[in-house]
Design a protein around this nucleic acid. Structure first.
Lengths: 149, 149
DNA sequence: CAGGTTGTTGACGTTAACGTAAGCACTCGG
DNA sequence: CCGAGTGCTTACGTTAACGTCAACAACCTG
């Protein structure tokens, strides 16, 4: 599959039946500055499930968003397994029963609690680094004063 | 080295000459709920440098603090290499020249900026999860209304 | 002094998250 | 029709961060 194939596929339908733009793998790789291998790897792990067109992978906007979430999750320090859990919360669970929706809300709360813990840790580190910084600046100021300007 | 050895070592000196309490490796392992192997591993990587007493490792309060920082760094999603950088900022750089202190402040600023980015990412995820949660709760409320209570 | 606890040093195994390379298929421009 | 470009699969290599296991030493206790 190549760029032209995708282009014609998208252009041949003035009003596509439900899935707007499609993206190729290299396209996404460049946009997010990661390797093709990484994207395929995420697919292997079940984090992405692009459709196949002519043997090649075709990603929808939704896939693109998911990839963004994956990378943000990584940036936040989550494992792919954790990210998978988070992603599962983004599905089309419009058909679930009340029980299941409650369960989902619970999962989301748990995920949010974990993220909050992480944030607190970061804030603690920021605080401590700020203290070290302040201390350094004080000794620096003292040194400069000692030099009589 | 064992618990008693440490105990006697600490008790034999009413006013120890500069290094208060000492901790054994299992002690720290239990306190932080990690394995002995992990602690030794951090030492291998240069993140910890306990003194040796009778062949066994003896950790000071300072070592204990460093271990805490290591674990918090991990919880925040940092690699051991990154953590090592952060830890190097906590040293006794009271004897550095102004140039070096300036450099250190720069390093700290960089580290803080990175942490801040991470925090922002977390907040973004929290926001999105909150939205999903809200959406779910709305459909849940609708379902309950549909049941006429 | 036998046994248990606590510690030590290797050495090898494992999991996660990819990187790298080989070899083959399709498709397009010339 | 052919080479360049793009993509696919399969398989092996790599790095980080430990876990696990073996074999041994020091020490306290009964």
């Amino acid at each position: 599959m190549n760029a032209t194939a995708r282009k014609t596929a998208a252009q041949s339908l003035a009003s596509p039946p439900g899935e707007g733009e499609l993206y190729g793998i290299t396209e996404l790789a460049q946009e997010f500055a990661i390797s093709l291998r990484a994207i395929r790897f995420y697919e292997d792990k079940g984090l992405l499930a692009p459709r196949r067109i002519n043997g090649g992978r075709a990603y929808t906007r939704r896939d693109r968003v998911r990839l963004g979430l994956i990378l943000r999750g990584k940036a936040v320090g989550m494992s792919l397994a954790e990210i998978e859990h988070i992603l599962s919360l983004y599905g089309d669970h419009g058909e679930g029963h009340a029980k299941q929706l409650d369960y989902l809300v619970g999962r989301i709360d748990a995920a949010m609690a974990e993220l909050d813990t992480r944030r607190r840790n970061i804030e603690a580190m920021l605080g401590e680094l700020g203290e070290v910084r302040g201390q350094l600046q004080r000794t620096l100021a003292a040194k400069r004063r000692a030099r009589k300007k």
